[in-house]
Design a protein around this nucleic acid. Sequence first.
DNA 1: CTCATTAAGAGGCATTGTGTTCCTTATCGA
DNA 2: TCGATAAGGAACACAATGCCTCTTAATGAG
Lengths: 198, 198
Amino acid sequence: MPLNETSATPARRRRGAELEAALLDAALAELLASGYDDLTYEAVAERAQTSRAVLYRRWPTKRELALAAALQLLDSHPVPTPDTGSLRGDVLELLTVANGSRARLGLQLVAQLGSTGGVSLADLRRPVARRNEERMTAILGRAEDRGEIPTADVPRRARDVALDLWRHDVLLHRSAASPQQIEQIVDDVFLPLVGYRG
Amino acid sequence: MPLNETSATPARRRRGAELEAALLDAALAELLASGYDDLTYEAVAERAQTSRAVLYRRWPTKRELALAAALQLLDSHPVPTPDTGSLRGDVLELLTVANGSRARLGLQLVAQLGSTGGVSLADLRRPVARRNEERMTAILGRAEDRGEIPTADVPRRARDVALDLWRHDVLLHRSAASPQQIEQIVDDVFLPLVGYRG
DNA sequence: CTCATTAAGAGGCATTGTGTTCCTTATCGA
DNA sequence: TCGATAAGGAACACAATGCCTCTTAATGAG
């Protein structure tokens, strides 16, 4: 018989996806509040109203725990594909939205936490990267249809250059890119490269 | 009177730059051997043959300690400015050498460790970034002299695009870039952008 | 519905590393 | 030569780890 204290609540227990989501939410909150260095299993467990053992069973190391939380953040905030009617508008919009999204935070965290064991950072980002490629391909296709560029058949490296440079800036500065940075990426690099006729 | 054990060595004490270099060497060795998570003041102190207090006096947090070690690595391996006689050769050489240098490791570590307190990551890289800008400017100047490009007066963003994309790849993949990656950066992005007449 | 299986959540425990303080004495600069 | 500085050694309480056991909700198979 359990020692019923003041209340007689039958001690509800979460399981499966519900529990896991709560754990990662707590981990993310702690991560953002305390930073990686001061992140502790104890604080996460307390915030999630559970025991450390529950966390250890799923994520044996602090790095894996933090990474799982960051990944959840990363792909729970997908960036929509813009369609503004012009190539320049589309790319500016894409970068600006990505820049303001919570996904940016996820990117920074994932990049900081890096890879664990056999899984490389590129692997972790694979799904996101694939979506981005498709987005740019779609944007370029519409631009070709409008006659803004001679061809949408652009080398991969050139096609992705805008997002790559934006990502570079975000990772290096550890903060959002400024509107000026975004404009320069688009006007000084991306548009000239795809043969945009301004 | 000190309890002289078997030896009568008068307990030599290092100071200043000599000591500091030894501390950072030990920190870097531990960092590379154990990784950031398992880096401890105790292990660094032991390796450097000193006490933890000496470390704490200089770097109050593990992050600052690791960052100092990474920064030392970063700017103790400067990349020379190439002069191969052609624009393409110069840029390929620049990226390839940077890619193989120990400085790449420093870059990865610094990016992972991020900024501490008021100092931003960009600030930490400022000296290196400046050197890189000058290098690219010099390379472009020689290319203009040779008539390989119409003008060396290129927007900053375009001028730095090769190193930025290389850095992007290194930070994202957490490993050296492949020769193919480097070639694509140069041939599909950088050279077209500066108006190279191949 | 019943019962065996799974795992949540609570607690305990030895161990490690932290962060700090105190002390001595080697080293350096005036 | 002497006083200020700080290296290096030691000890301390404390926080968190990593691992363990135990009870008992929750679940799914029959």
